[in-house]
Design a protein around this nucleic acid. Sequence first.
DNA 1: ATCGATAATTGTAACGTTAAAATCATCAAC
DNA 2: GTTGATGATTTTAACGTTACAATTATCGAT
Lengths: 352, 352
Amino acid sequence: MRSMRMKNRVTLKDIAAIAGVSATTVSLALNRDDVLTEAMRRRIRKIAAETGYTPNAAARALRGVRTKSIGVVINYFDNASFKTVISGIEEVTNKAGVTFWVAQTHDQLGREEAQIRLLAEQGVDGIILMPCSDAYAHLEAAAAQFDIPIILIYHNFGNRFGAVQVDNLHGATEVTRHLLAALPDRPLVHLSGLQGKSAQRTRTEAFCAVMRELRPGVAPEEAVIPVQRLTLAEGYRAMGEALRRHSPPLSVFACTDNVALGVFKYCRDHGLRIPEDVALAGFAGIDTLEDLGIPLTTVRIPDHALGRAAAERLLECIDRPEKREDCAVITLPVSLIIRESTGGGAQPAAPA
Amino acid sequence: MRSMRMKNRVTLKDIAAIAGVSATTVSLALNRDDVLTEAMRRRIRKIAAETGYTPNAAARALRGVRTKSIGVVINYFDNASFKTVISGIEEVTNKAGVTFWVAQTHDQLGREEAQIRLLAEQGVDGIILMPCSDAYAHLEAAAAQFDIPIILIYHNFGNRFGAVQVDNLHGATEVTRHLLAALPDRPLVHLSGLQGKSAQRTRTEAFCAVMRELRPGVAPEEAVIPVQRLTLAEGYRAMGEALRRHSPPLSVFACTDNVALGVFKYCRDHGLRIPEDVALAGFAGIDTLEDLGIPLTTVRIPDHALGRAAAERLLECIDRPEKREDCAVITLPVSLIIRESTGGGAQPAAPA
DNA sequence: ATCGATAATTGTAACGTTAAAATCATCAAC
DNA sequence: GTTGATGATTTTAACGTTACAATTATCGAT
């Protein structure tokens, strides 16, 4: 029993033989509701169910039919936003009977290109991509060659591709204003990500704009300390750098919660109190931090809604090819969450 | 230029036409090194590269050729182990030129079944599965119907499937012994996961065995407090339950780091000090906790090696079908990490 | 030059599905 | 009871690739 391998998947032809009809009839019975006799359709579907028939996706794809699958490409599987975006995507695709494949790029252009290509070769109907840089030539090539739509998330390339992002401008402006207002007497530095991607660039620019407005005495560039990657370790390193420029008390705006965690650790290791010695804010709230007792002021971004929006747009582009010309960039709102790392709820975000 | 969609992917036949040879020759040139003239092979490969040819995966799969892709199915994308297992898998598959698709089951049997089926239909050569229960009928069915191997991770179904797991018995025994030795005067409870899966069952059994040996006065069952899911919230709830049975000081062995985090939070919220009032140990170390300043005693499990081992075994089964009969369960060693949540490094694990 | 043997290349068929065209059945209307 | 029209079903062909059998080219030995 166990060793009996039924190597041969049951196929349309098999069912056709059992039912005494043609393969086409079986195909029609299984895929259409408007064409065969009710009785015939039911009879064939019953046989299909009993024999455990499953359509051969390869044959379908070869025939040029939708595979009802999409690809999702992100930088790292352990990106803090990943699980939430994915759940948003899943919500939409599940409802539409579409499955998705996930791949990671390690934030390397070569891998991004390879993964996109692989997904396309596997016959996905479209791709949701968190790009690792501003480069897009390979994306245009792939989209054209395989004739599939690509929707970007978190970043945008001007209006070259459809994209869903968050309001980095507003978020970073708010955080910066908050830090300056809450602790007007302290120097403020910004631990800033590499400027190769739109989201990071926008945050940094917003920071500089607010600084120019409210701290006219300081050259904003002086207050920007670059981190090479958005990691805890880099945040730790950059915080050391910051303290070489300013002695506490000090305010810090980290471009990412992950980077902010590096600052937390640095302070713990060096006996600096938050917020007394170092006021700290992050960005792109890791929502588990609160439960872990890490009260970080941050900007919460709507990862779930972003995933939903991206999936909805992609499915629309797949169904209606004319929609692919629409390269609008959707920007979702963000919200400032004030916690103890910047002095606690002293300044409510809005009157109750 | 941009609007020019070259709907037609270049195919073997196209290259054949350009080169003035047959499609078969092109296929040979691209896939084999031992059959054509060196010159011919080079000439054709050059054309293929220039035209941007990519093989049609669907056609290959239909022909019954390996797709060089495998499926990885886990419970949740935000499972703390996920990113590390995946990186282990990726290391092996990358080297072999194999890609993988990832899917999640939400720990629901129905979804597990559906995802496996979908992956199989897409033509993967094999599947690595973190099962959501002890049920395996659907797995045997899928493995037989699609003639693909399945390797389990983290859990095992006796010797019915090849599996790679960690030494839960040893790990749980060590933690329990450590807690009893470090704090001999306190009551000890175990927050225990649902017993439907082998890993959780083994941990609970190990706990009970040690208790029977070293605390003969207590019925081990009395010391077991079940959690319904392996979440922080459930850990929080269960901790309340524990404190209804025993007043502090108390020792707690949580079946999972996630559950232990719930205990941490409970203690923070209720003014209980760790380890003074509550000594706490977890399992399956979340390696970021240390950096976050959460000094949890735990059992570190080798997620990366586990991913590697599973991928290696799967690829072997794919290449050599006779290996599929080998349903051995590989058990990887674990290590006890002692931190402050059980009183710190007072008891070194082994003499230096 | 012719034959044999070996290497290089090609033609054919098939994988499972479905769009489109073709055939067949049914039945109302004259 | 033949005609037309409508609906149900089938035949044919094709998607791109590769295993296999068949063919053709090459070249050394006679």
